[in-house]
C-alpha cells in the first residue's frame, strides 16, 4: 500500500492504495469517476485516456506510485456549471458519438491537443488521435467534430 497525494479535476486528494493499482482503477473505483473507460489494458485502444500534467496519457499504464504529485483531468471536468464545453458541443453536433465508449478518451486526447495547439493541421489532429480506437464511427465524423471545435474555440 502507498499513500499518494495528487489533484484530480482541480481537487486535491490524498488516498492510500495498493501498489498494483493503475490510475484508471483509482479514478473508477476509488474516486467513482467512471467516465474514463477500460478497453484493453495494454495502451492500445485509448479508451482510458486522461490528461496528466498537461499531456494525454493512457491511464491503464500509469501505476499508482507514478500518480504522486500529478495533476489529472478527466472527462467529468469538461462540463462546468451545467454548461458543456465547446468541444463537447462540437462532438454532439457532428455525429462523433455512436456507442460513446471511445468518446471520453477522444475528448481528452483532443483537449490535450487543443490546449497546446489551438490551430492544428489535419495531420496533427490525426496524430493526436491515432491512439484512440473507435469501432463505430469510422473516424470521419470525429475529425469533422475536432475541426468544428477548433473554429468554435476561436470565437
Amino acid at each position: 500500500m502507498i499513500d499518494i497525494k495528487f489533484n484530480v479535476n482541480g481537487k486535491d486528494l490524498e488516498i492510500s492504495v495498493d501498489d498494483s493499482k493503475r490510475l484508471l482503477d483509482i479514478l473508477r473505483e476509488d474516486l467513482g469517476l467512471t467516465g474514463t473507460k477500460e478497453g484493453c489494458a495494454v495502451g492500445e485502444c485509448g479508451a482510458c485516456t486522461v490528461i496528466m500534467n498537461g499531456e494525454a496519457v493512457n491511464s491503464c499504464m500509469i501505476l499508482a506510485a507514478q500518480v504522486r504529485g500529478a495533476k489529472v483531468e478527466t472527462v467529468e471536468n469538461l462540463e462546468q456549471n451545467d454548461i458543456l464545453s465547446r468541444l463537447q458541443e462540437a462532438f454532439l453536433d457532428n455525429g462523433a458519438i455512436q456507442c460513446g465508449f471511445c468518446t471520453p478518451g477522444m475528448l481528452m486526447s483532443t483537449k490535450a491537443l487543443l490546449d497546446k495547439n489551438p490551430n492544428p493541421t489535419e495531420d496533427e489532429i490525426k496524430t493526436a488521435l491515432e491512439g484512440n480506437l473507435c469501432r463505430c464511427t469510422g473516424y470521419v465524423p470525429i475529425l469533422h467534430s475536432v475541426k468544428d471545435a477548433v473554429t468554435r474555440m476561436k470565437k
Binding site: 467512471t34 467516465g35 473507460k37 462540463e79 458543456l84 463537447q88 458519438i97 460513446g100 468518446t103
Partner: peptide, 13 residues
C-alpha cells in the same frame, strides 16, 4: 448524446 460526452452514461462495468 449528453450523457456520453460528459462521461455520465452508465455502461455495464
Amino acid at each position: 448524446g449528453y450523457e456520453k460526452v460528459t462521461g455520465k452514461a452508465v455502461y455495464g462495468d
